[in-house]
Design a protein around this nucleic acid. Structure first.
Length: 428
DNA sequence: ATGATACGGGCGGCTGATTA
DNA sequence: TAATCAGCCGCCCGTATCAT
């Protein structure tokens, strides 16, 4: 619900954020045509002797399923599509380059693609590319059905590891057959975009807590359950894996992913996909990206080591023949703040190199350790040191419908109840 | 003994689509 | 129109273990 706005100079961005009023669809529905009258709260922080402005408002709403359905790929710690949309709309024009160095499930680049921007996506975890690339080239139900029908299932096949706590024998045979098919296609260099689409959907269906997934009831798929733990869950719930039709579920999710995707959005995605770059590099070292090529970065880095990305993805890595240990070796961000800061500074240097003069960096971070560590405030001097001008901190505050009960955390307590974005500009 | 680091838990409210 | 249900989302922190 961002007001239509073209690219703004730095002073008008301040004006825009200051005078921002969110047009509320909710209120419209309730026959009140009024704007959401919340005005932006402004305060100032002093960091390293310099004043920095902080804007707090409900700049976007992030209800579930309010963005394009194509984003509905579960991944650990993914921000809502409304976040990148806000900054892309505010800070870039069509055909300009948008980049996400910590791409994850690819929310930023997919959203940028829908909006007709050019994109580069990077993530050190190869799973990111597997989940992102195919969604630029949305396949029709018919294409997917036809391809699936060509894939032979050997009902004698079994996984080399014990997955009996997750899958019915027949389901497991179907998954393993699909895994082997995809591996063979890849090895023979025959893997096409339809195969990749199927790989992406299947990877997303491996485990979850409803009948739309291949597995028995388990946790939602953004967090992995260990085999030992799954056995206990099965015991506790007195359940055992029932048969799930793998091909049928893939077709169903294929349909769901494009549920509300408009025709022109699909075309724009495909256009962006044709020129897109997908990297699997360390964000500090991306020589594939030329100097001053990028108009906007919207990203969110790992917050210290709060999330175990490789562990949470063990089953998906198994399906895609990705060595979890190899990824763990590459991801070296520790829980120590000073080391995190060092790594981020190197990354910021790289961002400065590839952003064009006049371009922006929107860097989303959060509070961790019960608010003891405010990463947004840590990030401001890092950006300034490498040459960026800190524009300000943008905080999106909303009445949350979040239900993070896993760790007994109440609404608006800890975690990402607010999105905190540090906005930087590279001056001309 | 003390501080640092590693490990890993295991739900449920809400929204929107589908079905009755 | 109401009822049902699939599927989304959550970057924390207590405790065990290791290092000094």
């Amino acid at each position: 619900m961002v007001n239509k706005i073209s690219k703004k100079s730095i002073s008008t961005i301040h004006g825009y954020l200051k005078n921002f009023k969110l047009y509320s669809k909710e209120k419209e529905r309730k026959n009140s045509k009024k704007l959401n009258q919340k005005s932006t709260k402004i305060d100032y922080l002093e960091i390293d002797g310099k004043k920095i402005i902080r804007y707090t408002n409900e700049f976007w709403t992030s209800k579930q399923r309010q963005a394009a359905s194509i984003h509905e790929i579960s991944y650990r710690a993914c921000f809502k599509a409304q976040l990148p949309k806000f900054f892309i709309q505010l800070l870039t024009k069509e055909n300009e380059m948008v980049y996400d160095p910590f791409s994850g499930r690819g929310t930023t680049v997919i959203e940028a693609g829908i909006m007709g921007r050019k994109v580069i996506s990077n993530d050190i975890n190869p799973l990111s590319e597997i989940l992102t690339v195919p969604r630029f080239f949305v396949q029709t139900i018919k294409e997917v059905e036809e391809r699936l029908s060509e894939i032979k299932v050997d009902y004698k096949s079994e996984a080399e590891i014990d997955l009996s706590m997750f899958y019915h024998k027949k389901t497991e045979a179907e998954i393993v057959s699909l895994k082997n098919y995809l591996l063979e296609r890849k090895e023979k260099n025959e893997e096409d975009i339809i195969d990749k689409w199927i790989r992406m959907v299947a990877t997303n269906r491996l485990s979850g807590h409803s009948k739309g997934f291949f597995s028995v009831f388990t946790l939602p798929p953004n967090q992995a359950v260990s085999p030992e733990r799954q056995r206990k869950i099965n015991e506790k719930r007195n359940q055992e894996p029932e048969y799930r039709e793998v091909k049928k579920l893939i077709v169903r999710k294929t349909k769901a992913l494009q549920r509300n995707l408009k025709k022109e959005e699909k075309i724009k995605l495909a256009e962006a996909g044709k020129t897109a770059k997908f990297l699997t590099s360390d964000a500090r070292k991306t020589p594939e990206i030329e100097d001053e090529k990028v108009s906007l970065i919207v990203t969110s880095p790992p917050f210290l080591d709060v999330v175990q990305y490789s562990k949470d993805n063990w089953l998906r890595c198994w399906f895609n023949d990705i060595d979890v240990k190899e990824i763990e070796k590459k991801i070296t961000i520790t829980r120590k703040l000073d080391e995190w800061t060092k790594v981020m500074k190197e990354a910021f240097k790289e961002f400065y190199r590839i952003i064009k003069p006049g371009g922006y960096l929107a860097f989303e971070v959060g509070e961790v350790r019960k608010g003891k560590i405010k990463l947004d405030e840590e990030v401001v001097p890092i950006g300034a040191e490498v040459g960026f001008e800190p524009v300000g901190i943008v905080i999106n505050l909303q009445e949350f419908t979040k239900t993070a009960n896993i760790w007994g955390i109440e609404n608006n307590e800890y975690g990402t109840n607010t999105n905190r974005i540090v906005l930087f500009k590279k001056n001309r």
